[in-house]
Computed example of a mutant assay.
Amino acid sequence: MSLLLNLLWFVLGGWIMAIQWFIGGLILAITIIGLPFVPGIWRIAMFSAFPFGQELIDSPKGRGGSVFSGLLNIFWLIFAGIWIAISHALAGIVLFITIIGIPFGFAHFKLAGAALMPVGKEIVPKPLKTR
């Protein structure tokens, strides 16, 4: 099911979102201040291309640098994260108007959460539910 949803998501606009996140990462890579944000942003770019069947978790590797990650996330939240999260949340609300758009609305809400604090996160496959 997640393969079908990912294909529909990618064809109907997920690729545009992924390119926007990737270009944003390239722009930040040019600056010295924005360079620490680039790996997290590119992870979200891949996540925004194929959000179904995956989840964003705190990285176990990031525990040693958690203070640095926390400071970067606060800086990101103030200057960019809140605005990106609001746009994803609004898109999710609009998609909830139609029955077909509900899964895509949930994906936008997932991306809104990812946009708030991208540094120190890791994308992992979502565990399969057993009946």
Rank of each mutant, 00 (worst) to 15 (best):
L111N: 05
F68C: 09
L90W: 10
I99K: 02
G24I: 07
I41D: 01
L28R: 11
L35F: 10
I74W: 04
G105M: 12
A91M: 09
I57H: 02
L72Q: 14
G40Q: 06
L56K: 01
I33N: 08
L5D: 09
W42G: 10
L26C: 15
V124H: 00
Q54Y: 13
V67R: 02
I44M: 15
L111K: 03
A80R: 13
P51Q: 09
P60T: 01
I32Y: 10
F50K: 00
W9R: 03
I102D: 15
W15A: 15
P36Y: 06
L95G: 02
Q54W: 10
I44P: 01
H108Y: 03
I123L: 14
G120F: 06
M46T: 10
W42A: 10
D58K: 00
N73L: 04
P39M: 14
G101S: 11
G13R: 05
F47C: 08
L8V: 12
G113Q: 01
L90M: 13
K129S: 14
I27D: 02
F52R: 03
L7Y: 03
F104D: 11
I44T: 07
F109D: 01
L95R: 09
I93W: 09
I123D: 01
V67P: 00
I84H: 02
L116K: 00
L95W: 10
I86P: 00
V94K: 06
I123N: 07
A115L: 13
S59G: 13
V38R: 08
N73V: 07
L7E: 03
A29I: 02
E122H: 04
F10K: 07
